[in-house]
Design a protein around this nucleic acid. Structure first.
Lengths: 305, 305
DNA sequence: TCAATAGTGTCTATTAGACAGTATACC
DNA sequence: GGTATACTGTCTAATAGACACTATTGA
């Protein structure tokens, strides 16, 4: 175990002499996508409240993108793990404590385009979190000016498919809208997918960004896509729910994320094994009370992260 | 558009004065998992060649982990994208040119444990590539000593599930084996999954590593898992195939990655729409010739990366 | 009574799994 | 003919989608 390298050094000697600053390094940040399902004010006493998918954004107080809105996040310290950094930044900027609240968190993607930050080269590792907004109180710290929930919507504005030799080019324009009582942010993105034979290329471009800092609209869009995918075959949706919930409430959450209506009977069949009947009921208003369920921790599919 | 920050600076002034070296930065590397399906020497003239899943490793020529094997990869330059860095390092260390060969490449995960590199804090962005080994010639450059394919196998050695209050703890021990003509590397890992109510935690530990550098056995294991998942619902498997192939060859690839036998009739039904009959046949030996197919570029499911 | 939601039964279409059979090369 | 692989047909089970029906509350 005392091998020498080509300079005749043992490992201990090598490490003692190692100059960590030999090369210039990029900065590393973490960004957090925090999704929740929020209530919209109810239209009638008899109807159930209207629900919306929301995302947490923080107002930038300095250049670049001053006064625009960004995902909570910041620089990674040398002595903290990536996930820990994301938790710390979230706590600093919004007051949300991932560990105390036992909040779901998953790595999303790492963004490393050379020009994504005008200050310097910045590589950003993004994470997704899902929270039950009822349980979370926002109390933005000094670090960021404000932290706010924004109602989130994305839609395909246009799509064009051109057939080329041995494949095709697909151009899709996607509009992202973030909205709350007094703000409305938006972004237009174009995703170009080139398929020729077995080779594929995806290119993304921001055509227009109104109030959303950096390349964060890409990150949000990507996170939405991931959410849409994973809700179909995992139990992540339950992280958006309170401990006890009705099946109709759960179905609403699925519908909002998937962006389409589901049939009640089929939905119930599908999630049957993921929930446990608690025996209790919730009385909303002038209609039949709904049974309250909770997540079934026995339900499981994989050991994957 | 000439907003001032709290110090009274415009964006241009702020950027001109920005000190990118205010904080210490972690180093950022990329690591490449290059998978292929390789031939094993055939046992009999009449039988089809035996196929194996292989991964590309590079021998370390310096501390730390000198003389052990690592994934191809290295430090990211300030002026190159993450994917570009991965391509460059792969080319330098193994001679494989991702762009020229139109090789499939996908971001896997970003590893950022504080202690994962004894030299300094290193964050590593990992990528998966799938190649047809017939088309690839290895010619390792100066950067790394040797680049070699290793036959890859992973198996669950033991599994233990303990029921706890409101959930369970699952401990799984996984053995990873990398083998070629003159080397045999291995690693024992333990994955502990704690589920309590709706909160889940995963912890990974390397119990024993023989010849595999850094935390690369985690990365390999994670990549294998991803491969196994994605082969079921995407077309990635075709990246492991030559342009023309028989359905039996394709099925073998699926079987190797999934680690189980498939029924021929069902397999063919499943991949029917992903392939095109070329009209040509391949004559192997003393049995019925097989039709040659190619990938159908029309087949598609999503626009996701 | 009825508006509004909660909850169930069942038919059908699609997909996945199992298995048995036929076809075709060359030794 | 025999061996080894190529390819097909069909039965069955499981899953997903559609729709119609019944149940229960308080205004």
């Amino acid at each position: 175990m005392d091998k020498l390298n080509k300079d005749g050094l043992t490992e201990a000697q090598f490490l003692a002499n190692y100059n960590a600053d030999k090369y210039k390094k990029p900065a590393v940040t973490v960004d957090m996508l925090v999704f929740t399902i929020g209530n919209r004010s109810s239209r009638s006493i008899r109807k159930l409240p209207d629900k919306k998918l929301k995302i947490l954004m923080v107002k930038r107080r300095n250049h670049p993108y001053i006064d625009q809105w960004a995902l909570p996040g910041g620089f990674v310290d040398l002595d903290e793990g990536l996930k820990d950094a994301a938790k710390r930044e979230l706590a600093e900027e919004t007051g949300i404590d991932v560990d105390r609240e036992e909040i779901y968190m998953e790595q999303l993607y790492t963004w490393g385009d050379v020009e994504r930050d005008p200050r310097m080269r910045v590589i950003s590792v993004s994470y997704i979190s899902l929270v039950d907004s009822e349980r979370i109180e926002l109390c933005p710290g000094d670090d960021a000016g404000e932290a706010c929930w924004f109602e989130l919507q994305n839609r395909t504005v246009s799509e064009e498919k051109k057939i080329i030799d041995g494949g095709y080019i697909l151009k899709r324009t996607i509009e992202l809208k973030l909205e709350n009582e007094d703000q409305m942010l938006s972004s237009l993105m174009m995703i170009t997918r080139t398929v020729r034979g077995s080779s594929k290329k995806v290119e993304k471009k921001i055509l227009n960004s109104d109030g959303i800092a950096f390349d964060h609209s890409f990150i949000i869009e990507y996170g939405l896509e991931r959410l849409k995918n994973k809700i179909e075959y995992t139990d992540i949706a339950f992280n958006l729910m309170p401990e006890y919930f009705t099946l109709t409430e759960l179905q609403k959450v699925y519908e909002i994320i998937l962006g389409k209506k589901l049939l009640k009977a089929n939905f119930r069949r599908k999630i049957e094994e993921m929930v446990i009947d608690t025996g209790r009921v919730r009385k909303y208003a002038a209609h039949r009370p709904a049974k309250l369920y909770m997540f079934n921790p026995e339900w499981d599919k994989s050991i994957l992260e």
